[in-house]
Structures are given as structure tokens and as C-alpha cells.
Computed example of a mutant assay.
Amino acid sequence: MKGFSIFLFFAVSTIVLAINGAYGVYAQEDENIDDIVDVEGEEGSIITDEETVEDTSNASADADTTILFTKPIYNMLSTLELPAGNIVEFLVGFINKGESDFVLESLDASFRYAMDFNFYIQNFSTFTFNKVVKPKHEATLAYSFIPSENFAGRPFGLNVNLNYRDTNGISYNEAVFNETVQIIEIDDGLDGETIFLYVFLAACIILALVGGQQLLSSLGRKSRSSTTRKTAVEMGTSNPNNVDYDWLPKEVLNRINKSPRTPKQSPRQRKAKRTAGSDD
């Protein structure tokens, strides 16, 4: 029973830890957007609703830009869905149609309020390139970011800006992508609730097995004790001389109990028997 008590203590401790872990996961999912800070590998910044930013996007007539989402793949026929907590990758293509060089300086992205793109929700990292594109040439820039898991289930405006300049020093800021996207939650692993259920189920199964083992062990001890008492009673009734037979194996004791026993005769009976035999 001491071993069973120790195991029960560890099993209860495991269940309590699992409950605390699941509660921590739920608490993290219920955080407010305003409490979000930096995401790993990103520059996070929150701008309140009181701050507005004017749209100063402008593009050169001698440049064409395109965007291609490689992770996840976007077919342009529906709303773009970005997985929360997973990396998002896309390529920006730039074509120089003019007669002078362009310098691709940087590429940045941000989440905006879906109802008004002037309201910023989060700024992501700015990738600096300073890549020169000759006339009649093209270039491709790669960019990636990770949407926060706290944004799951909400729509946001995704704004991707390409900053470049020409040889005259004129700067351009073109919105390569400026549409509403949906942040979705991907169930590609075990969440806190599932882990808790598995741990709880495993603990219940182990407790049931240990309890069954203890029950069978106690029943076996009772059966052996009953058999020992029965053997002692049988040996006591047929053992008038109180001989100790405990050291004998059970097979020998069984043969002794089953073998026929001749009744003992007194000396007078034996003498009378011999006298009767001599007279014949």
C-alpha cells in the first residue's frame, strides 16, 4: 500500500500540472490585442485609434510591380488567409521600363484596421536591399513575417510597401499589396486542451490498473490464507501426535491426506487375535 500511495501522489501532481498548463494556454489566447508586444523576428508596434496616418503612396510611371505569395499560396480569387503563428512568405517583382536606373531601397509590411486602412495595428520588420535595377531589367525581392497567434480569427488590412528611387534622387513609395486578409488558426499540432485530456486519460488508466493489481493481490493473499488454515485443520484432525508437517511440500501432504490409514489396535486386542489364530 505504501507504493500505491506514492504513485497516487505523483499521479495527482501530474494532473494538477496539466490543468495549470491548459489554463495558461487559454489565458494566453484571451489576451487583448492592445497588450501585444514584439513578435519573434518582427518589429511590433501598436498605434492607437487616435493616431492616423495619411496615405502618401506614389509610384513611378516607368516601373511595374507584382506580388506573389509563396507561403501560403494565394489564388487571387478569394480573401487571402494567413495562418496565425506561422511564417508568411511572398516575392515582389519589379520591372524597370524607363531609361534610367532605379534603386530598390527597402520593403516593409504592416497590419491595418480592416475598416479604415489609415489606422495601424502592427508594423513588421523593414527589409533593406539597395538593389540597382538597370533599364529594361527586372528584379525580385523576398519578404517574410509571422502573424501573431493572438490575431487568429480576425480580419486585418495587409499593406506591403516598396520604397525605391531613381538616379535623380526622387523617392517613390508604392503599395504593392493593400487588401484585407483573414488571420486563421491552423490545427497542425496538439493544443493545451488536447494535451490535458490525454494526460488525464493516461492518469485514469494507470490508476485503474494499479487499483486492479492491488485488488487482485489482496484477494490472492486471502485465498492463500484460507487454504493454509484449511490444511492446518485437516492435519490437526488426523495428527493426534501433533507432528509438524509444515516443512513438507504440498504434494506430499496431499498424498498423506489421501492415503488410507489402518486403525491402531491396543495390545489386548493384538494378543486376543494371536490366541485365536493359535487355536485354529
Rank of each mutant, 00 (worst) to 15 (best):
K258G: 08
A152F: 05
L197R: 15
L190P: 14
E138N: 14
P83T: 01
T194W: 09
D244Y: 12
I195Y: 15
E29R: 13
E81I: 01
F90P: 01
T167G: 00
D191Q: 08
E40A: 10
K250F: 02
L248P: 08
T70Q: 11
K250P: 03
P263Y: 09
S5D: 14
F9C: 07
L104K: 03
S238N: 13
S78C: 02
D30L: 10
F145Q: 01
F7P: 04
N58L: 09
A202P: 04
P72D: 02
L248K: 12
P147R: 01
G212H: 07
I46N: 04
M235Q: 14
D49M: 01
N159S: 09
L219Y: 13
V252M: 10
I195N: 12
K273T: 11
Y143N: 00
P83N: 00
K97H: 13
T56M: 11
A27M: 12
G3V: 07
V92R: 02
F94R: 04
L158I: 00
R224S: 08
D62P: 13
V132Y: 02
L209Y: 09
S266W: 12
F117M: 07
V88C: 00
K271N: 11
S57N: 13
D30E: 08
L201K: 11
E40D: 13
S259A: 15
A276I: 14
N20Q: 12
P83S: 03
I256E: 04
L158K: 02
V133W: 10
T237E: 14
V16M: 06
L82A: 02
N163I: 06
S5G: 06
E174T: 13
F200T: 15
F177S: 05
Y143P: 00
G153Q: 01
L68K: 15
E50N: 10
D64L: 14
L216H: 08
R221A: 06
F10Y: 15
L219S: 04
Q213P: 00
F151V: 01
F7Q: 14
E40I: 08
D38E: 12
P83H: 01
V39E: 11
F117D: 02
I33G: 00
D116A: 12
Y143S: 00
I47S: 07
I206V: 15
V160K: 03
N163K: 09
G85M: 05
D101C: 06
E234I: 02
S13K: 10
R221M: 05
R165I: 01
Y74C: 00
L162Q: 04
T194R: 13
E81F: 02
R255E: 12
V181F: 04
S217A: 11
V243R: 11
D187M: 08
S218P: 00
E251M: 10
T79A: 01
K271A: 15
S278V: 14
I184T: 14
V210S: 11
L253G: 06
V12C: 12
T275K: 15
R268S: 11
L209P: 04
A109E: 10
D64W: 06
I206G: 13
P155Q: 14
Y26A: 09
R229L: 08
K273A: 09
D55S: 08
E50S: 09
T65L: 13
L253N: 10
Q265V: 06
R154H: 09
Y245R: 10
L104C: 06
G24V: 06
Q213W: 14
L253V: 15
G192S: 07
E31D: 11
E43F: 13
V92M: 00
D108F: 14
D30W: 04
P83M: 01
V133A: 05
T167R: 06
G24C: 09
F4H: 10
V252W: 09
E149S: 12
